[in-house]
C-alpha cells in the first residue's frame, strides 16, 4: 500500500521482466541522447553553439558598435570585416546589416546595459537563439547561403520596450 507504512518483506519484491527491460532501455535512451550531442561536435563543425566569448567593457563595446553602424549603414559589409552588434534597451546597433550570401562573417555581440537575447528568424523556418550578456562579447560565425531577409529580435525580457527590439539582416547575392 503506497499510503500506509509497510515492512520490508511486504515491499521489497523482485523486479519483473518488463521492469528490468525498461530500466535498461531508459538508461540506453539517456546514453543515446547524451552520445548524440557529443558526437555532433565531430559530425558537423558548422552547426554548433558558439564557443568563443571574451570580456568586453560595456562602454567601449557600445562605441565600437556605433562606429560600425555609422561606417556600414546602407552598405554591404565586405568579406573579412568583423561585425559589432550591440543589444541596447530597446534597439539593436546597428539595426540593419547587409551581408553577402555565401560569405562567412564574424559577429561580436554584447550589451551595455542588461541581459538580452539574440534571435535570428528567417525564411524557411530558420531560427537561431543565443544569449547576449552585458560585459561579455559572444563571437559568432555565421554564413547565410542564400539571399533573403532575416529578422533579429530580442528573446530575453529586457524591459517595457522589449518587443520593439527588432532589427534586420539583409542577405544579398
Amino acid at each position: 500500500m503506497t499510503i500506509f507504512p509497510r515492512s520490508i518483506e511486504e515491499w521489497y519484491k523482485p523486479l519483473t521482466r518488463e521492469e528490468k527491460i525498461w530500466i535498461a532501455l531508459a538508461f540506453i535512451v539517456a546514453l543515446t541522447l547524451a552520445g548524440t550531442t557529443i558526437a555532433w561536435h565531430f559530425i558537423d563543425r558548422s552547426h554548433q553553439v558558439p564557443s568563443i566569448a571574451v570580456e568586453a567593457d560595456p562602454r567601449e563595446f557600445l562605441s565600437k558598435a556605433m562606429e560600425f553602424s555609422r561606417t556600414y549603414s546602407g552598405k554591404v559589409v565586405p568579406e573579412g570585416t568583423d561585425i559589432y552588434l550591440a543589444a541596447v534597451r530597446f534597439t539593436w546597433i546597428p539595426s540593419e546589416l547587409i551581408l553577402k550570401a555565401g560569405v562567412t562573417y564574424r559577429i561580436w555581440v554584447s550589451s551595455p546595459d542588461v541581459l538580452h537575447g539574440l534571435s535570428i528568424i528567417g525564411p524557411g523556418d530558420v531560427v537561431y537563439n543565443v544569449m547576449v550578456m552585458p560585459g561579455m562579447a559572444y563571437v559568432i560565425h555565421v554564413k547565410f547561403d542564400k539571399p533573403g531577409e532575416y529578422e533579429i529580435r530580442c528573446n530575453e525580457f529586457c524591459g517595457i520596450g522589449h518587443a520593439n527590439m527588432i532589427g534586420r539582416i539583409r542577405v544579398v547575392g
Partner: peptide, 12 residues
C-alpha cells in the same frame, strides 16, 4: 535541453 538543438528553441 541539448546543447546544439537548444539554438533552435532557447527562449522561444
Amino acid at each position: 535541453t541539448t546543447l546544439q538543438p537548444n539554438l533552435l528553441f532557447h527562449n522561444t
